[in-house]
Design a protein around this nucleic acid. Structure first.
Lengths: 344, 344
DNA sequence: CTCGGATGATGAACCGGTTCATTGACTCCG
DNA sequence: CGGAGTCAATGAACCGGTTCATCATCCGAG
């Protein structure tokens, strides 16, 4: 007998089998709802399990089965309020299907993404949903290609071999920009995140499309990218408004950056609506209840979460599906008082 | 030979051992950084692992060791923006220590809490952090008492046998209420969550303390509890303001309910500050950037997350610690323009 | 030269379920 | 009545690491 890691005595299939007077295999079949068990034995086993307070060890099940019933979700940073909606819905769908959600944040760094992928495979995680900081990153792409489990990308779209769930950020940005151009604005500043990755890149494309559709060329000095925190947004806004020729409209395209922008405008005593028009890249209580209320792009993050979980479940079931399905959730523009026509 | 669940061929300790020309036990010792391995063998083993692209199977490790290096976090509902801060920090501390975070939401229902606890023990989770919908619930208390792993309560304090991390909500509510009383308000309405559980109960206590300190009795008809969603807050606010004798101040004590309240006031064309004073139970971009800015209670949720993770780690290490430590994070009141003295 | 002790390596047993080849009982039919 | 076929139940082998009793080697002391 080798050593016993000290641990409270637990009831095992063996014990249940003995108590019910059956073989361990029978207990296992009862546990897994196999049809080939007579009602009488099933009942005896179930009674024994209840009497002894038996509980399966998922670890042991996972080991033999080679799957863990774990799904990992790794996103840039989960203190983005609206993102929580995505996770919440995804978790609900996964739990319903018997899976448990593992959560980790990548802090938007490729090396963390790679090391998380490794950690996930060590845990024999059955599926992964994640964002990427840089879709073109060599090592990340390699790690994704080598991942033994299905991976679904959240709001990233350039890797065709993988399933993707995205919002139509290009459309949203085009709508927002066209709206401002239609109001007479010509100097529109844009605050976006990392344009190496999908959402910001798409937003920039939408922005440029709207400009070309209007036959105008945007002033590239009014573009601020790598705006990833509220502080970044604050600084970017301040520097834009300090230009000799400041913008007449601000398109705060990155998610959840509106606060930093408004804080800067307030510090500089610039009135939203009068002094400058503002459009937010995502809706929020703040956008809705601000004075004046802020025009914003909106989409259904809860639906994204549900779709992501559902698609991943299908993939994990090994259904015969084409490689790399993309699903896009539409965006729309909610026009409010913060975007006004340019009085000349 | 029994069946092989079809699965990509993986490299195992056996293979590494063969390639390095050592015993499996030696490979295991290298993996776990045991000191009793000569440098030469260690290097040979490490080279073999690199050559073969070996990766340990955490499932197998967990099985033998009886621990999973998983920590579960179950909270009411993680679409509470500021709560994400807690999770983010806790996850960072846990990951640093080699643990992975499992996430689930209880939707504030005792039966879900119980079933999650059961699921966690089936997974041999090493520790749990959670909120409770009702600290007095018999079955929940029983499930907690029977849990084989340490459990830490988040913002709940009545179960002395367990570790707890709380914010001083009683203090916050007392500060907020005293502030309003000091401004001359006598009819202060309060919106709270479920007063069966800690944070709302404590807030109510703080509220009452402030009233008794002032020698006044609050009007109980101005108390609205079970305000758990933005819609609840909207309805509660509307019904309060429709009273024959409406309140002069609103204390929206529940977390993240400010939006619903402000929405109702705007619908009813009641001006914050002039028509009614408002104090929020938690700070947010919305509170800060509203016009007028909203007086709010603030505390450090990130620190709570760090402390929770640290305390749980100590407990999981089995350090000799007294049962049930409580840690309280202070709250403070940020006074802004939404709370004004009552013009008579 | 021998013996005791220290050090490092070995590999079989073990963790707790699941699987499947095998067995046993029973039915059906010629 | 015998043989084929059906269906449940059995239990040993297995999943992939970890552990520890045992063994081999080496060194220094006597």
């Amino acid at each position: 007998m080798t050593s016993q890691p000290r641990r409270p005595q637990t009831v095992k299939v063996r014990d249940v089998a003995r108590a019910a007077g059956v073989a361990v295999g029978t207990v296992s079949r009862v546990l897994n709802d196999r049809p080939t068990v007579t009602r009488e034995l099933r009942e005896r086993v179930e009674r024994a399990m209840a009497d002894l307070g038996y509980e399966v060890d998922v670890t042991a099940q996972s080991m033999r089965a080679g799957r863990s019933r774990l799904v990992a979700c790794a996103i840039r940073d989960f203190d983005i309020p609206r993102f929580a909606l995505f996770i919440k819905e995804a978790e609900a769908v996964l739990r319903e299907a018997g899976y448990t959600l593992l959560l980790a944040s990548t802090t938007n760094r490729p090396e963390v993404e790679i090391s998380l992928l490794r950690a996930f495979r060590r845990r024999r995680v059955d599926g992964v949903m994640m964002t990427l900081s840089d879709e073109a990153h060599r090592d990340v792409r390699q790690a994704l290609a080598e991942a033994p489990m299905p991976v679904l990308l959240i709001d990233r779209d350039s890797i065709e071999a993988l399933d993707r769930v995205t919002a139509d950020h290009r459309l949203g940005a085009r709508l927002a920009t066209s709206h401002l151009l239609g109001l007479g604005h010509r100097r529109i500043a844009m605050l976006v995140g990392d344009i190496k990755a999908f959402p910001s890149r798409s937003r920039l494309e939408g922005f440029r499309e709207a400009y070309s559709a209007a036959g105008i060329t945007p002033d590239s000095r009014l573009l601020r990218h790598n705006v990833l925190s509220s502080e970044d947004a604050y600084r970017a806004t301040a520097s834009l408004m300090n230009l000799a020729d400041p913008p007449t409209a601000l398109f705060v395209a990155a998610m959840d950056m509106l606060g930093g922008c408004l804080r800067a405008l307030r510090t500089m005593s610039i009135d939203v609506g009068d002094g400058i028009s503002v459009v937010a890249g995502s809706d929020s209580d703040l956008a809705e209840l601000h004075t004046p209320p802020i025009t914003a792009i909106e989409w259904d993050l809860a639906a994204m979460g549900r779709h992501a979980a559902t698609m991943l479940l299908e993939r994990m079931r090994g259904d015969e599906i084409e490689r790399g399905r993309g699903l896009t959730v539409p965006t729309e523009l909610i026009i409010r008082g913060s975007s006004r026509s340019l009085a000349r």
